[in-house]
């Protein structure tokens, strides 16, 4: 799969240096093309897009309230259909707060009605934009400003992909910026399918994960290699497929690059490794049928 040469995203956007979300958008726009409308709730991207009267996205963007990305996208699509426009794709582009916590009600309703939209959750594992508060996407034992080092997060990350699979929507995929060919392929496939499509992107956040700016791609690659974030596709909520399966590495390699995990001990890492292994076994069983 070749990545398009056309640059739809404009430079000058105000993402932090090394931002995974900005790079995700660049690849997504390359795959989807200019015939796309974006709906963005409150999230990092409502800032990255730029201050009034400027916009970096290069395509129409509709800024919406935090909880309403999915339903607004469904409404925009219904409006287009009423005009007889069947070719424009509508993309809801939300962070993990707007998907896992605040936007899940609208997302669930939209998925149940199977509205013809692509819902993208770029997951940076906390409310990074407002000052790194914990979200239900924050991983076990991670530091955030609301789960300080003495009381790191005690809960596991919510399994949003399984929640969406339970809605039996036509297409679900996970992707990350370190594998842009895979990401592009999934966006092009999602565009060709009718119904609600859900794409979960892991998007490294240097200020929030307390990692080095230049390590963003390395971390996202290690997330896949260590099987913390497997790259999969699910069709109709039941047909599972692992799309990229590189040689595995230890979870430790992934965790030690991030300052938000600096306080955790080797026993804790052992525990996380066990969880990751168990989830991987479960996933393998699902791919078998």
């Amino acid at each position: 799969m070749k990545i398009s040469d056309e640059e739809i995203l404009n430079p000058g956007h105000v993402a932090c240096p090394g931002c995974g979300a900005a790079l995700s958008m660049r690849f997504a726009l390359k795959a989807l093309g200019r015939d796309t409308i974006l709906v963005i709730p409150a999230c990092c991207w409502s800032v990255i897009d730029g201050p009034f009267p400027y916009s970096s996205a290069g395509i129409p963007v509709f800024h919406m309230a935090f909880e309403a990305a999915a339903s607004t996208a469904a409404g925009v699509k219904a409006g287009l259909l009423a005009q007889g426009n069947t070719h424009t794709s509508v993309v809801a582009w939300a962070g993990d707060g707007g998907t896992f916590d605040i936007g899940i009600q609208a997302l669930s309703g939209t998925a149940e009605r199977n509205a013809d939209i692509i819902y993208v959750c770029y997951d940076n594992e906390a409310y990074q934009n407002t000052g790194i508060q914990r979200s239900s996407a924050t991983p076990y034992l991670a530091w955030t400003t609301t789960t300080p080092v003495k009381f790191p997060k005690q809960e596991q990350k919510k399994d949003i992909v399984e929640i969406m699979a339970a809605h039996r929507i036509p297409y679900i995929a996970t992707a990350t910026v370190a594998f842009p060919e895979d990401l592009t392929k999934k966006f092009i496939k999602a565009k060709s399918i009718k119904g609600t499509k859900f794409i979960h992107l892991l998007s490294p956040c240097p200020p929030g994960w307390k990692s080095k700016d230049q390590d963003s791609i390395k971390i996202s690659r290690l997330a896949v290699k260590s099987r913390v974030f497997p790259l999969i596709e699910i069709e109709n909520g039941e047909k599972y497929k692992i799309t990229v399966n590189p040689k595995p590495v230890a979870v430790k390699d992934y965790i030690r690059l991030q300052g938000r995990f600096r306080h955790i001990s080797d026993e804790n890492i052992e525990q996380i490794q066990k969880n990751v292994d168990r989830n991987w076994e479960k996933l393998l069983k699902k791919t078998e049928g």
Partner: peptide, 10 residues
């Protein structure tokens, strides 16, 4: 939006 962020020299 009336223009792109190309005016913003980051």
């Amino acid at each position: 939006s009336l223009g792109t962020t190309r005016v913003n020299l980051t």
